[in-house]
Design a protein around this nucleic acid. Structure first.
Lengths: 141, 141
DNA sequence: CCAGTTTCATTCGAATACGAATGAGCAGCC
DNA sequence: GGCTGCTCATTCGTATTCGAATGAAACTGG
């Protein structure tokens, strides 16, 4: 059976992005084995530390997660004692999130892991190619 | 709280790849609404049509899916009657997959959907930038 | 003040995605 | 033949991811 039309799955941007994302996730998992964080958990913890305190919905928007997704991520980070929830007396709908001491203690190693995974994932490209790739990727998201 | 080190989550390649993948998936879902296929299901069906018949494990390797993942994808495609399973008398471990008439009837529209999602996802870039981006992305996967 | 709208968080269901374990079958080697 | 090791497919558990629905709370216009 010939490939339909002239379509090549291997050149489809969605297929390539899916594989690139998979590959980075695998690299990150190795890099962050000591911290024991997934890329998603790292993003949520990193942004929480950066802001000091943040509502769950705002955190979700900043790290590109659905409210339903961020709920699960926050639940697991809270269960591990890396972030804490508190109430906002001004808005009783919201959950205010803050990094705990354990979360702050972990963020240094976690950031180092992320930097290692960044370098490893981009290693097949030269420095200039990495710069171009990241600039183009920025314009697609 | 200042960002740890000089780390910016927004410039992390994993974070950008995750968002780019999300964005394409959303675009594909709209493009392929008529076909009713997810990007993953499309990849599996497309490769099955291209090869005529393929074992489930080989299909998984060709479309970058874990055996556990491809099992679920094939189960759903089979349930919809788009592909069929048969036995290989030479190797009773394997499941041989073939596209059904319904699968063949759907592939044209599905490929057109994929081509539309490809163009839409890359629309922020010029033709030359698209070429460069895809070439670099190819080298990362 | 109040009715309509919006926002926040949660829950459910469905679909990837992977590690680990399992059972079945095949292949090589002595 | 028998043993060992490998492969194929499945299953379980955990983690993302989103659509849709829900309930509570806040906001907005009159």
């Amino acid at each position: 059976m010939p490939p339909p039309n002239g379509f090549l799955l291997e050149d489809h941007v969605g297929f390539l992005l899916r594989k690139a994302h998979q590959r980075h996730a695998a690299i990150f998992q190795v890099s962050a084995a000591k911290a024991g964080l997934t890329p998603t958990q790292f993003a949520a913890l990193c942004k929480t530390v950066e802001l000091g305190h943040v509502t769950q919905n705002l955190l979700g928007r900043l790290v590109a997660m659905d409210p339903a997704t961020v709920q699960g991520v926050v639940r697991r980070l809270t269960a591990r004692g890396l972030i804490a929830r508190s109430d906002d007396p001004m808005d009783r709908r919201t959950a205010v999130l803050t990094a705990t001491e354990a979360g702050l203690a972990l963020i240094g190693e976690a950031v180092a892991s992320a930097q290692r995974s960044h370098s490893t994932a981009l290693a097949p490209l030269s420095n200039e190619e990495q710069r171009v790739f990241l600039a183009l990727l920025h314009r697609l998201v």
